[in-house]
């Protein structure tokens, strides 16, 4: 099985879906000739032409809104927001429109659109090229939010998102683009949206996280294993709606749960995970639910000192895991 990078898995999924279904097309800023600012769409313009690989005006609400319109009449658009931070002008289109089209029309209309965006920090992106924006969208029934951690998951979940009958936000960690590599089958496959994945089995503590932080948890788990502490790592993969069953099962099994996100803590995805565990697992818990997250400041500063202070890393995760194990 070939080993490819996270971003190449994005490109591979897009290419295969565009080859499979002529209704699939992609649109966004600089995604055509340039192949995207991160090169996620490299080679697609050459292969599919400018009709299906659309360089749009610098205009995020139109990118989302035009994609929504096309999706409503049977196309399968995949819109790219150049950075998750720049999705803000499109929030009205995503929340007031895409998320509600099926519901408000009593199932008469639907909106099978995918909106991809690179998120996350640790790449000297400062306030407006580093943010995690998932929590903004994670209380909007009608939306699905997918945040894969591995190239294998990227390919299977992006294909599933494109084939999904409802709007999907697909957030890709930009630091993972080239730093994370993994085995990806050349064959066609899809992974289920709405299902978490247990990336490592263990009996002593559970870490529940998503995106790049999954890798930090896996690295830390290796170290703890040398000291005889077995960690279960649950990768949420879909952060909305959450896979309650897998969360509850793992929390009940180990009784010690650490939740990790790169986002700010208050009102984050892991806040909801925490509430699910609190509601369902009170008598199974052997320690208070722990949350490890970014500080309560608006976003990640530029200077390396402050960026590092904000950013999640394996050491921070390992420290929190050891503390929980010793509780």
């Amino acid at each position: 099985m070939p080993v490819i990078s996270y971003i190449d898995a994005v490109t591979m999924a897009l290419r295969e879906e565009m080859e499979r279904d002529s209704n699939v097309f992609i649109l966004g800023e600089d995604i055509g000739r340039k192949g995207g600012v991160f090169k996620a769409t490299q080679g697609l313009y050459e292969q599919f032409g400018e009709e299906r690989v659309l360089d749009t005006p610098l205009s995020e609400s139109a990118i989302a809104g035009v994609a929504i319109g096309a999706a409503m009449v049977g196309k399968r658009p995949v819109a790219e927001m150049q950075f998750a931070d720049f999705i803000m002008p499109a929030v009205n289109q995503i929340i007031s429109e895409a998320a509600r089209i099926r519901y408000r029309s009593n199932n008469d209309w639907d909106c099978p659109v995918v909106i991809r965006a690179p998120y996350g920090g640790g790449i000297h992106g400062a306030l407006y090229h580093s943010q995690s924006v998932e929590a903004i969208f994670a209380n909007q029934p009608g939306l699905k939010i997918v945040m894969p951690s591995t190239p294998y998951d990227v390919k299977g979940l992006l294909k599933a998102a494109i084939r999904d009958e409802d709007p999907v936000l697909f957030f890709e960690h930009k630091k993972a683009y080239r730093s994370i590599k993994g085995e990806v089958p050349e064959a066609d496959y899809v992974l289920p949206i709405g299902k978490a994945d247990v990336k490592r089995k263990g009996d002593d503590i559970t870490v529940i996280t998503y995106g790049l932080c999954v890798h930090f948890a896996m690295q830390a788990a290796e170290k703890l294993a040398k000291d005889g502490i077995e960690t279960e790592v649950v990768d949420l993969r879909t952060v909305y709606p959450l896979d309650q069953e897998t969360i509850i099962e793992s929390a009940a099994k180990t009784g010690k749960v650490l939740l990790v996100t790169e986002d700010n803590k208050e009102g984050s995805i892991i806040s909801e995970v925490s509430a699910i565990i609190a509601e369902n697992c009170l008598f199974d818990l052997d320690a208070p639910i722990q949350r490890l997250a970014g500080p309560e400041i608006p976003a990640m500063p530029y200077a390396p000192t402050m960026e590092k202070y904000f950013m999640m890393n394996p050491e921070k995760v390992e420290k929190a895991m050891r503390e929980l194990a010793e509780f």
């Binding site: 809104g65 035009v66 009449v73 007031s96 408000r104």
Partner: peptide, 19 residues
Amino acid sequence: TNSSPVTTQVPHAVGIALA
């Protein structure tokens, strides 16, 4: 189908025309 936040339908019309 239409919503209450005004003019969101203009990009939709453009998307339908694009399709």
